[in-house]
Design a protein around this nucleic acid. Structure first.
Lengths: 140, 140
DNA sequence: TTTTTTACCTACTTTTTTAGTTGGTATTAG
DNA sequence: CTAATACCAACTAAAAAAGTAGGTAAAAAA
C-alpha cells in the first residue's frame, strides 16, 4: 500500500477545512468527529502541515485551524508529499542516500523513475477544490 | 514505499531468466549470486510465480528455473500484482473486503481509483523484454 | 482572575509488515 | 550412491504503521 493513514487522514482534514473555508477557525475536535478519526492521532499528523504554512492554527477558546490559502491553491501532491515524505514507488528514488551500487546497471530504475514522475504529475494535477463536495471529481 | 523487495526481487529474477531464455534451466543459486540476493529468500518468493505458470522449475541436478514463455509475453504489471498482491494505492481498493462505510460519500475514492487504473495501465504497458539489457528503456 | 477551550508537544505502546533465516524433504542426473 | 537442485514450513528480528497517554501553553469567556 502506497498511501498510509497519515496522508489519507491529512487529505480528509484538508478537504474538511476547505469546505469550511471563510468561516474562521475550525476546532480539530469537530473535524475529528465529522471524519471519525482519533483527535489525538490527528494532532500528531497536523504539525507538518502548519510548519509548511498549509494551515494556520490558533490556540485557545474560539481557536482551531483554517486553510492558509484558497482551496484551489492546494495541490494534492503537495499534501501527500509532506505527510508521506515521498511518493516514490521504491526506496532508491526517495532520497540522495542511494546506497545501491547497481545504479548504473539497474535495468528497472528508469521504469521506477518514470512511474515516480507519472505519480507526481497525477497528484499535482488535482487541486483541493477538485475534491470538495460541490464538485464532481472527473479526471481523464 | 509502494513496491517491496518481493516485487523488486521477483522482477530482477524474471529479467535474469529472460536474459537466459532458451538456454534451458538456470539454477536459482546462480541467479541469486548474480543479483546479489539471498538464495533462501528468493526461494520464498518464487512459489507464487511457479504456481501461476510464469516460470517452470525442475528439481534435481541440472535443474533450475526457466521462463514458461517468451520474454515479450510477460507484463511487468502481472509480475508485480502476483508478488505484491495488488498495486492499489490505498487499502479500500485492494479487495472486496471494503469495510469502509463512507464509500458512498468518500470524496477521495474516485481519485484513488483513477490512480489505481493509471498504475495498472503503466506497468501493463511494459513487457519483460523491454527491460532486458539489449534494450534501452524508453517510455514517454 | 479563574475557568474553559483550544493548539501544541513528547514519550510510549501495540499491531502489522517487511525482510529475512533455519532446517529440513523430495527429486533427478551422473 | 552422491551431489545438486527445487520445494516447503516454521521461526525471528527489525522496521513501520497506527494510535495512546499525559501533559503544557495560550487565549477567550465567565
Amino acid at each position: 500500500m502506497m498511501i498510509s493513514t497519515k496522508g489519507r487522514y491529512a487529505l480528509r482534514v484538508m478537504i474538511d477545512l476547505a469546505e469550511n473555508y471563510g468561516k474562521g477557525y475550525v476546532p480539530m475536535k469537530e473535524v475529528a468527529e465529522r471524519q471519525n478519526i482519533s483527535l489525538k492521532y490527528l494532532e500528531r499528523i497536523l504539525p507538518v502541515l502548519t510548519k509548511n504554512k498549509m494551515i494556520e492554527g490558533l490556540q485557545g477558546k474560539g481557536g482551531g485551524y483554517r486553510l492558509a490559502a484558497e482551496p484551489a491553491e492546494y495541490r494534492v501532491g503537495d499534501i501527500l508529499r509532506l505527510t508521506e515524505g515521498s511518493l516514490a514507488p521504491v526506496a532508491c528514488l526517495s532520497c540522495e542516500t542511494n546506497t545501491c551500487e547497481r545504479v548504473q546497471s539497474c535495468k528497472t530504475l528508469p521504469m521506477w523513475m518514470e512511474f515516480h514522475r507519472l505519480t507526481n504529475t497525477y497528484f499535482d494535477g488535482i487541486a483541493l477544490s477538485d475534491l470538495m463536495s460541490s464538485d464532481e471529481f472527473v479526471k481523464l
